[in-house]
Write a protein that binds this DNA or RNA. Structure first.
Length: 203
DNA sequence: CGGCTGATGATCT
DNA sequence: GATCATCAGCCGG
């Protein structure tokens, strides 16, 4: 089977909302493109979470450290960290320079390079390939080497325009956090089978 | 489906 | 030593 190759234009930084909640919502339906020696992976963003300045759940809360410094870059840069001894999380920085905020990529709808996304992983349903932030990073082969990368520039990972129509966007509390857990800063495409979380947070 | 649990390591106190 | 923006595997209904 011949996989269609999408002609996707890279998003310019000036197109991205600066504030993290607005950015998180804006990114639903947009695309992430991963360029690897073996080929290209392209996925449609279906779930994000915003982390704000003065948000106790944000890694930047409490100031800049070696780990979180990418969150303080101008909006549009990758922030990658390792957690639970197993998983990388991919974020994009939000806010102006020196303000620590970001958006977590939680789920993708695989559009291109599906075989590449599967490599080195067991039997995984296509709907589960990038469903959840850990699986998303695994599917895109994201690790700390990409931390600090400009996602608005040509390179190994960048943000692309939307492919096809965007469904209705839902909003909910964030998943898996304890601090400031009541804030409704998670955004997702309603009804998509590629969205993570309990069923009650997918409709 | 939902609920539970162990794995596993970087970071910070 | 505790915490952690998770996941796969297992169990019961």
């Amino acid at each position: 089977m011949v996989m269609a190759r999408y002609a996707v234009r890279r998003l310019r930084r000036a197109e991205l909302p600066v504030a993290s909640a607005a950015l998180a919502r804006y990114l639903i339906g947009k695309t992430l493109v991963r360029e690897l020696p073996k080929g290209r992976i392209l996925g449609r963003i279906v779930e994000t979470e915003a982390y704000l300045p003065n948000d106790a759940a944000c890694h930047a809360f409490g100031g800049e450290t070696r780990r979180n410094r990418s969150l303080f870059l101008r909006h549009g840069h990758a922030y990658v960290y390792f957690i639970y001894g197993n998983h990388f999380m991919l974020n994009v920085s939000a806010g102006p320079p020196r303000v620590g905020a970001g958006v977590l990529f939680r789920a993708l709808e695989p559009l291109e390079g599906v075989a590449l996304m599967r490599r080195g992983r067991g039997r995984v349903k296509e709907t589960d390939l990038a469903r959840g932030p850990g699986r998303l990073a695994a599917a895109l082969r994201v690790d700390r080497e990409l931390d600090g990368l400009d996602l608005c520039a040509a390179g190994p990972l960048w943000l692309g325009e939307a492919v096809g129509p965007v469904g209705r966007i839902g909003r909910s509390v964030r998943i898996g956090i304890r601090r400031d857990a009541h804030r409704r800063l998670r955004f997702y495409e309603r009804g998509s089978p590629f969205v993570s979380g309990p069923k009650s947070l997918r409709s």
